[in-house]
């Protein structure tokens, strides 16, 4: 008898605490833990669903009103039965809760020696800052291994979701939140904003690129060398256009987005909401970046926020826009 109890306890412990047990030896993978938890939930869900619907259908057929069965039996209740269907759900729920708790601990306990990057959201793009200080937009580059992200937002609440790593966390202005995932295999992984943040919410997409350690190091070297600092103005403008988040709303390919495309814009006339037209020149672009409230393009909503950009940077942006014919 004792042995049986011991065995059951051991089984339960194995089932309930696999993630915790693993943590001692190596870095856990919450994504895998999630998949296991999902299976547990699905098994219980299907079981409960059948336990409800099969008797339902059976009773409806068996006890249909017919001659000789015009009135139901007089039954008030049965304490034993009611206790049964209180206790069994309680046990199932305790099982789910404990399993979930262990998984949650994995999700929220950041392993030691994580690669750590920062992500800042704004309507409707992400800016990533690598530990070496390299800024990218809408693409996070990380080496293989556990990755911790420190998240925040410049304007409204956003969220950083990487479905393939089964993880998400909101990005709240004025706060730093975090998440971590175990990036085991090199590749590209989709990122979504899953907290409603306005008109461009469904286009607020990005990606995580997981690189082999040596590839990552090479990328860092390339981007921190002297060469990067002495780029020609239009190249610098391109970087700014991305890092300031302009590209989140203005395509450079001619596609319509949340704002007008900047391709083929420079030097041409464009219609405004107030019915007038304006020629897109250097002064107009500079003014628009600083004070977007005026002169909104026809057929678009005012979404843009004022930007405080240095004059040298503004010149670089204009130089870049000029190249987009």
């Amino acid at each position: 008898m004792n042995r049986v109890i011991m065995l059951i306890a051991a089984q339960l412990a194995l089932f309930v605490l696999p993630a915790a047990a693993m943590a001692k030896e190596r870095i856990p993978d919450p994504a895998k833990g999630w998949d296991a938890h999902f299976i547990l939930l699905m098994v219980i869900s299907v079981f409960v669903y059948l336990v409800v619907t099969i008797p339902l259908l059976y009773f409806v057929i068996k006890y249909r009103r017919r001659k000789g069965n015009e009135v139901g039996a007089y039954i008030e209740g049965n304490v034993g039965l009611e206790v049964t269907w209180t206790v069994i759900p309680l046990i199932l729920i305790a099982l789910i809760g404990v399993h979930s708790w262990a998984l949650f601990n994995d999700y929220r306990t950041v392993p030691k020696d994580c690669f750590e990057a920062k992500v800042i959201a704004q309507q409707f793009s992400y800016e990533m800052i690598s530990p070496e200080g390299i800024r990218t937009v809408n693409e996070l580059r990380v080496p293989v291994g556990p990755v911790k992200l420190n998240l925040t937002s410049k304007d409204v609440i956003h969220s950083f979701a990487v479905p393939q790593f089964r993880v998400r966390e909101d990005m709240v202005p004025g706060r730093e939140t975090y998440l971590w995932f175990n990036a085991k295999d090199p590749g590209t992984y989709e990122v979504f904003c899953s907290q409603y943040c306005g008109t461009g919410h469904s286009q607020m997409l990005a990606k995580v690129t997981v690189l082999k350690k040596e590839d990552y190091d090479a990328w860092v070297k390339q981007n921190t060398s002297e060469a990067a600092a002495s780029l020609p103005p239009e190249e610098q403008g391109k970087k700014l256009f991305e890092s300031l988040g302009c590209i989140g709303c203005h395509s450079v390919t001619g596609d319509k987005s949340i704002g007008p495309t900047v391709k083929g814009l420079f030097g041409n006339k464009t219609a405004l909401t107030d019915g007038t037209e304006v020629v897109v020149d250097e002064a107009f672009i500079k003014e628009k970046v600083k004070n977007p409230k005026e002169k909104v393009a026809k057929d678009y909503q005012l979404m843009m926020q004022p930007n405080n950009v240095m004059d040298t940077d503004l010149n670089a942006i204009v130089a870049y826009v000029k190249t987009l014919k």
Partner: peptide, 26 residues
């Protein structure tokens, strides 16, 4: 949150038990 499943479960099973041996008119 998940504890709410218990009283809700009681209600569901009591509905089933009400159907049991009833005279069901659809």
């Amino acid at each position: 949150t998940i504890l709410i499943g218990v009283p809700t479960g009681i209600k569901t099973f009591n509905w089933l038990a009400t159907l049991h041996k009833g005279s069901i008119d659809l």
